[in-house]
């Protein structure tokens, strides 16, 4: 299969006051990749993916998704196009059951497929929701209020919601933060499963996870792309070492 560009940004910038958080980023992401975005603190990683997801409007530049310009689309419309974002700080519906949390995502994906105003089939919602819960190992906790789960499980609810959206591009913002080592091992397996059907872009601090998972890595520093390449290339890159170690 020929590689197809899924996401493309041109000259993408975002200023906060005088600070350029993201500065003229030209970025390309191919379908089927697992792309890690790394960089020192304050490099603009979260701002960059927020621009892609539509949570923050850009100051300059454009974003194309599947060849179409989505720069002006509001966040919810981008989600419907297939860009899903899971929050760095867990943001689930604590008072709702785990099932309802994920069903909300599934229902959104179904509404996209069925078109506006179509009646959604509750059995179909159930089926897909349970599939996402099975995949993330949450099926047994479906009826629990999401807010009562342990932190690691709440993170999994986030991922299950991302899955429920059946996205073309799943953005994971620091997904392993606060997880224990066995949980991280499970998580790596989960991302591999997701990557069979979706392109994954993840922001990650844990280098072991990055090197294990990513097919390609993009390094951001002070709002710009510093380097890009395979894990081996990035590991060998002197500029990256300099940016990280300050030597």
């Amino acid at each position: 299969m020929a590689t197809v560009t899924l996401l493309e940004t041109n000259g993408l910038s975002r200023r906060f006051g005088g600070l350029k958080a993201v500065d003229g980023v030209d970025f390309r992401l191919d379908r089927g990749e697992i792309r890690a975005v790394i960089g020192p603190n304050g490099a603009g990683k979260t701002t960059f993916v927020s621009l892609v997801a539509g949570r923050v409007p850009p100051s300059e530049g454009s974003i194309r998704f599947e060849g179409e310009d989505v720069t002006r689309l509001p966040a919810h419309a981008r989600v419907r196009r297939g860009i899903a974002y899971t929050f760095q700080i867990t943001s689930i519906f604590g008072n709702l059951s785990v099932f309802d949390n994920v069903a909300l995502a599934v229902q959104s994906a179904l509404a996209k497929e069925a078109g506006f105003g179509a009646r959604l089939d509750e059995a179909e919602i159930r089926g897909r929701t349970m599939t996402a819960l099975d995949l993330t190992g949450l099926a047994a906790r479906a009826d629990q209020p999401a807010g009562t789960l342990a932190y690691g499980h709440q993170r999994l609810v986030e991922v299950a919601m991302g899955l429920g959206l059946a996205p073309k591009l799943l953005i994971l913002d620091e997904p392993t933060q606060g997880l224990s080592d066995p949980e991280i091992a499970d998580f790596i397996g989960l991302v591999r499963t997701i990557a069979e059907t979706a392109t994954v872009m993840l922001i990650e601090h844990n280098m072991a996870v990055v090197m294990d998972l990513a097919t390609r890595i993009t390094v951001l520093d002070r709002g710009r792309i510093l380097a890009e390449g395979t894990p081996a290339e990035i590991r060998a890159d002197a500029r990256v070492q300099h940016a990280y170690l300050g030597t």
Binding site: H76, V79, F87, I92, L104, A109
Partner: peptide
Amino acid sequence: RVLVAIRENEARTLMLGYDS
């Protein structure tokens, strides 16, 4: 379910693809 989701956390509902 969407209306309750808006009550609980509108920002998140938006990021699930709903025009709140």
